[in-house]
Simulated assay, not measured.
Amino acid sequence: MKNINRGLTLFCAVLYSTWGYSLPLEKLTLPDGFKIEVYAEDVSNARQMALGKTGIVYVGSRAEGKVHAVVDTDKDGTADKVVVVAENLTMPSGIAYKNGDLYVAAVSEVLKFENIDEVYANSPKGEVVISGLPTETHHGWKYIDFGPDGWLYVPVGAPCNICQTEGDGKFDDPRFASILKFDLASGEMKWVAKGVRNTVGFDWQPDSKELWFSDNGRDWMGDDLPPCEINRVSADDQHFGYPYIHAGDINDPEFGAGKNPDDYTKPELKLGAHVAPLGVHFYQGGQFPAEYNKSLFVAEHGSWNRTEKSGYKVMRANFNGNEIGTYETFIEGFLNPDDTVWGRPVAFLVLPDGSMLISDDFANAIYKVTYQK
């Protein structure tokens, strides 16, 4: 049955992305007053997004090796042109925009495309600004962004499902399973967090400026273990447990012997096992109702090795002061009742009018969420 469902899922993806079948947005449910529509289609393997100064949305990909520019030429609120900016890159999933330049993370290096808004349609050549990162592609794709301190934050995922990355002959590189940051002017690198298996999304809390990030739990501990995580970096030299401790209190069966969970930083929120949280975003736009201001949106990309699929939703964490209060569904319906899938949310981008874009690397699309009283 699982093979049949997997085949149906892949077949649906081909129908939607290759032969132009309409995406079934009518299956999606949102809170009252919210509307979701397609902002752009045919954006192959759409992952992280960044907004240029002229309104162009730049989009990375993991599987296609391409970076796209998504353009709303007639300014009607929906994109009408998709242009390949760069191609033949290694998993250029993560992108960031600053001072007119586009930064693209391609596993072992970060490239800068200068004055991208003027040259995006002319096959520009990128300049390498960070090199020498690990070349392993397992969890090698990245989410990047510039922090409030002006440094470029770059995670390096674990090169495996579960393994040691210090003192192990095969993967002896302390940069694995961590979040780093770089001062591009000086080339200086600093550690932000360690013991992070695979984060593909982070954001800064607007008031405290603390970094919050998602982390994907390890596989092959069963359907319900370990929980995926939402974490907060609140001090220097924090270690979040991988590969020894999962979700704050679960000793790994291979590497956790003799390790004390209290020696590691616990998650702010435990999610479902295998829901695969990717993008996270603190909403600060002016369009959604006031109670949504500074809520943390989480894209649960969805499980791949669970008996019954989980995730495939957009969630919203609400806060009581500095602590998470409730965690509730914001968008669901990407997962069909027969356990097949037609979409997988990845990352967020808020436009100047307060509407929110959501990328989908399975349906090769970008959605736009708006609110009207």
Rank of each mutant, 00 (worst) to 15 (best):
A273D: 03
G285E: 12
K35E: 13
C160P: 07
A13N: 05
K2A: 13
N251K: 14
Q284N: 14
T78P: 02
S17N: 13
V369N: 06
D263V: 04
D168E: 15
G169A: 13
T137Y: 00
E323K: 14
G169E: 14
A177W: 09
D219Q: 07
V70R: 04
E308T: 15
W304V: 11
F240G: 00
K81G: 02
A79L: 02
R344H: 08
D80M: 01
D183S: 03
L349G: 01
D237E: 13
P267W: 09
T137K: 13
Y21H: 09
N364P: 03
W342I: 01
W220V: 10
W220D: 15
P155G: 07
D203W: 04
D263Q: 12
Q372T: 15
A347D: 15
N231W: 06
C228E: 13
L269A: 09
V110S: 02
I230Y: 02
F330E: 10
V192C: 00
H139N: 13
E308Q: 15
S186A: 07
S310A: 15
K75M: 05
R316P: 07
A40E: 06
L351F: 05
E114P: 03
G311I: 11
Q205R: 15
P31Q: 06
E136M: 03
I230W: 02
D172G: 10
W212P: 02
L111I: 02
P267Y: 06
G55Q: 10
W304D: 08
K170C: 05
P124N: 10
A79Y: 00
V82Q: 04
K294Q: 15
Y292E: 12
K125C: 03
D360K: 03
D361H: 05
I116Q: 04
V341W: 07
N45C: 12
S93P: 01
G222L: 05
A290M: 09
W191M: 11
F182M: 02
C160M: 06
I130S: 03
I4P: 04
Y242M: 03
P159K: 12
